[in-house]
């Protein structure tokens, strides 16, 4: 198991190397020029050329790539063209914001998705099953921006229950330590702020959770239905076991592999794909950070942002692969 995990982590190196090359080339293929964006449309040709020189953009692309790679290996993500700040310092608060939001969203999606799927399978063709699956279908089809706007209109504008934007109260901002605000407020014993942070998290995390929740519910239902028809479930019933334990113990553990796959993929997608939610709810996450960088043609930031997202995507899939063996003893890694 350990040697398998080590090998998988080592395989990360070529993956990230390939990723960096692809991102590096694609960015340079997009029309647009960082110097032009910075200096404006009325800039003279000389000014643009001297800025190109200052940014190193006048060198051949492979020279640029090698120097970028050299910096990367020493842990230097480079400097943002737009803000002139080191990216390694700038990126963490954004990454932490997205991770916190995705984490809460996935907890919601997993809890409700799995339970809805289980009960649908258990009470197949019942009213609950029908209702849950229709809601799941709507959930899959609902565009996040539309759901986000509806939430803001209903719970912020009309009912005034929850804040519509941001991570915390600007006039009473959280003093960041880890940049995970849920942790930071608790570390500082600021339970009033902790509550504020939770209130800020609810709307965006529910919006973000909807699609994964619906996908998890549908996957859980179909996987459970298959397992519950199997011989060993009949054996468990013949022992006199309660239906609750048959469903939640005997069936769920067997049905969990495909559910786990979906959870892994969806978590990976949330990390990079939360741009819409982050934009609607003014969430200072990595998606928005990279999106803004693309608009400014801030090459180093785009490269680093995408690389970090890719890294987490691969790591989550590695964790999922290792978890397979925990749920199914027949899976062995060598």
């Amino acid at each position: 198991m350990l040697s398998y995990a080590t090998r998988r982590v080592l395989m990360l190196i070529p993956v990230l190397f390939g990723m960096s090359l692809i991102v590096f080339s694609i960015i340079r293929l997009i029309p647009g020029d960082p110097a032009q964006t910075i200096l404006g449309t009325k800039a003279t040709q000389e000014a643009i050329q001297s800025l190109h020189h200052a940014l190193g953009l006048d060198k051949p692309w492979f020279v640029q790539y090698v120097s970028y790679l050299k910096d990367l290996l020493t842990g230097d993500f480079g400097t943002s063209i737009r803000t002139n700040a080191p990216i390694s310092q700038e990126i963490w608060p954004h990454l932490a914001a997205t991770m916190e939001l995705s984490f809460v969203a996935m907890i919601i999606a997993i809890f409700f998705g799995i339970n809805a799927g289980i009960i649908s399978a258990w009470k197949q063709n019942s009213i609950f099953d029908f209702t849950a699956m229709v809601i799941a279908l709507i959930g899959v089809s609902m565009p996040v921006f539309w759901l986000g706007l509806l939430e803001q209109w209903g719970f912020s504008l009309e009912l005034h229950w929850l804040p519509s934007i941001g991570r915390d109260n600007i006039r009473n901002a959280v003093n960041p330590i880890t940049h995970f605000f849920l942790i930071d407020t608790l570390l500082q014993g600021r339970f009033d702020q902790f509550w504020v942070v939770i209130k800020h998290l609810i709307l965006p995390s529910v919006a973000l959770a909807t699609i994964p929740m619906a996908i998890i519910a549908r996957m859980t239902r179909s996987s459970m239905l298959e397992v519950m028809r199997s011989d060993y479930i009949r054996t468990a019933r013949a022992k006199g076991q309660r239906m609750f334990w048959i469903v939640y113990k005997h069936s769920l553990k067997n049905a969990f592999i495909p559910i786990l796959t979906v959870i892994g993929l969806q978590t990976g997608l949330l990390l990079g794909g939360a741009i819409l939610t982050e934009t609607i709810f003014g969430w200072p996450g990595i998606g928005r950070y990279v999106y803004n960088a693309i608009q400014y043609r801030d090459y180093p930031v785009i490269q680093s942002g995408i690389l970090v997202i890719a890294f987490f995507f691969v790591m989550i899939n590695l964790i999922v692969d290792i978890l397979y063996a925990v749920f199914d003893p027949r899976i062995k890694y060598r």
């Binding site: 060993y232 054996t235 013949a238 022992k239 006199g240 005997h250 199914d328």
Partner: peptide, 28 residues
């Protein structure tokens, strides 16, 4: 009732099935 049947199953009347390969739960 289902609860009475649960008391009987396994305790009073037990059953062995045809397919030993699939009748045991593979993950326990």
């Amino acid at each position: 009732s289902e609860s009475r049947m649960r008391q009987i199953r396994g305790n009073d009347i037990a059953m062995i099935f045809q397919e030993p390969m699939t009748s045991l739960n593979p993950v326990f």
